[in-house]
């Protein structure tokens, strides 16, 4: 019984260390917000339940001290990443594990972007930036590029900011076009454009009624200057 309490104390100490570290590290103090506190207390409960499983208790209790500390640090590090909130950029490689966590009770129209190149032969070609830079994978490339495109096409921004953002977008498109031409010398592009696509789920057949509009076109050179 005394041993049970000792493990429970240890697991509480581990949880508290992760909580305190997150509190000191996270500028937004997520962990003291109502949701952050509720989530972290759930984890205290989960850890306590886990350590009350006889097999877990026996395994942890039988570990040499160094290895037990190693296991505690690994689990504590995961909890620290989670308790630092919703911005994983500061804590990588320890990150908050939050996926598919938005709420949209009504279907809203949305915009997405396509890249279309104009070939030297006058034909249009779809350009897939993810295939040109596979290291970034779909999600990273899409989120990164969409951010640049949205800012570059935002006409509501202040003039200087708008010019700077559009310049960045042009620079990015030129780089993508250049790499496309290097990878596909037989289908070289002379220009690359952004197509703004509007999807309205309220339409009867939204798939066939996506409106597409070319928003910007930049010239593409064959290789880096």
């Amino acid at each position: 019984m005394a041993r049970d309490w000792s493990q429970l104390m240890r697991i509480t100490l581990l949880w508290f260390s992760a909580y305190l570290a997150a509190l000191l590290f996270d500028r937004d103090l997520w962990v003291v917000s109502p949701y952050g506190l509720a989530e972290s207390l759930c984890w205290l409960l989960i850890l306590s339940l886990l350590v009350s499983v006889p097999a877990v208790r026996a395994f942890v209790g039988g570990l040499p001290r160094a290895q037990r500390a190693f296991c505690a640090v690994a689990i504590g590090a995961l909890l620290f990443g989670q308790f630092t909130g919703i911005r994983p950029k500061r804590t990588f490689p320890l990150v908050p594990w939050r996926m598919f966590g938005s709420v949209d009770r009504t279907l809203q129209p949305f915009t997405f972007f396509e890249l279309v190149g104009d070939g030297q032969d006058g034909r249009s070609r779809a350009v897939n930036p993810v295939k040109l830079f596979p290291s970034l994978k779909n999600f990273r490339m899409t989120v990164g590029l969409n951010g640049i495109i949205e800012r570059g096409l935002d006409e509501g921004a202040a003039r200087e900011q708008r010019q700077a953002d559009e310049q960045r977008l042009r620079e990015m498109l030129a780089a993508i076009g250049r790499v496309y031409n290097e990878r596909h010398p037989d289908e070289a592009l002379r220009s690359l454009g952004v197509i703004r696509c509007h999807f309205d789920p309220a339409l009867h057949h939204p798939e066939t009624q996506i409106s597409r509009q070319r928003a910007l076109t930049v010239d593409v050179v064959a290789s880096a200057p």
Binding site: A38, M99, G101, V103, D104, R105, Q108
Partner: peptide, 20 residues
């Protein structure tokens, strides 16, 4: 746990899943 604590019940609305 994060989805259950932070986004219940909205995350499990059919339109939320459709939007994703």
């Amino acid at each position: 746990v994060s989805r259950l604590v932070l986004w219940t019940p909205g995350a499990f609305h059919p339109n939320t899943v459709t939007t994703w």
